[in-house]
Design a binder for these strands. Sequence first.
DNA 1: TATGCGTGGAT
DNA 2: TATCCAAGCAT
Length: 351
Amino acid sequence: MDTSTDTISASLLAWYEGLARVLPWRSPPGTPPPDPYRVWLSEVMLQQTTVAAVGPYFAKFLARWPTVKELAAADDAEVMAAWAGLGYYARARNLLACARAVAARGGAFPGTEAELRELPGLGAYTAAAVAAIAFGERATVVDANVERVVARLFAIDEPLPAARKAIRARAEELTPAERPGDFAQAMMDLGATVCTNRNPRCLLCPLAANCAGRRAGAERFPVKPAKAAKAQRRGCAFWIERGGAVWLVQRPNTGMLGGMRALPDDGWAARSDGCGEGPLPGEWRAGGVVRHAFTHFDLDLQLMLYSGGDLDRLASDNGEWWPLDRIDEAGLPTLFAKAARLALAERETGE
DNA sequence: TATGCGTGGAT
DNA sequence: TATCCAAGCAT
């Protein structure tokens, strides 16, 4: 078996020439790199997020804010609303902070991995990816795809996360001085389309002849630790209507769904049980329940509908009346978008 | 190093 | 239905 790093990277690049995925934020193999703004924007959106989910958001952001300077000048609330539904909302807060940092230096992204790493929201992966893809630096790009491909290629049976040191060292050896951006994208394409998590298509793999893991069964690499069972939580959200508008609040920047517009709730994000206090006294009736799965717990959110009382007692410091006919533009995260749909449906059927 | 942080699609 | 997890980052 040939484990020469030159052979492996050359085979992979040759494969990429013919089979690279065509993506809106990407230049074809061997052609000049895209605008760093596009590379950065796509990479941030792609963190822990599928290509399919990112597509429409990337198009929307690029149309609305074609340059990093325009993004930097945007209102926070508008950007957060545009990000609604994509998840991991700290990314959107960091996106703005990063855009403003770049705008402050004239609108040009720094061109090295080390400088990029200092920007908000750019960790080891994203800094290396932007450096390699947008600027042609020989940076070692390691995401979950690369981790999987390398762990299989070298049959690394040490479990994650301890194996990451060895995986990075191998990935570093493989990274070529020429076309490091194409190489990184080729590794990720291979991981996404051939060397998949389950049912890898080894017969189609350009590196099959170089792969030590294949004989032992590629699927068993990388070795992962067992996961803890997910917790179950219950909480309440409150629907308060007045004159064709609903009361929405702004969540604090820290914690779950931070910085997002939302229905008022009882603080379920910080507790684990039951339905707590609403935002004002009065008469409430129970609506339906929204079941929602977060990464680290499942939530049953009881919808409570306001049916009478003294609206003057509503604390009005961090909220606003939002017109119901524009509810889709409120930028509610998915959990609260579900709750709002449910409230509107129950209201129409007069339940 | 471990944990908190979203969502929707695949199996 | 249940489980996994996708181009990770911040703390």
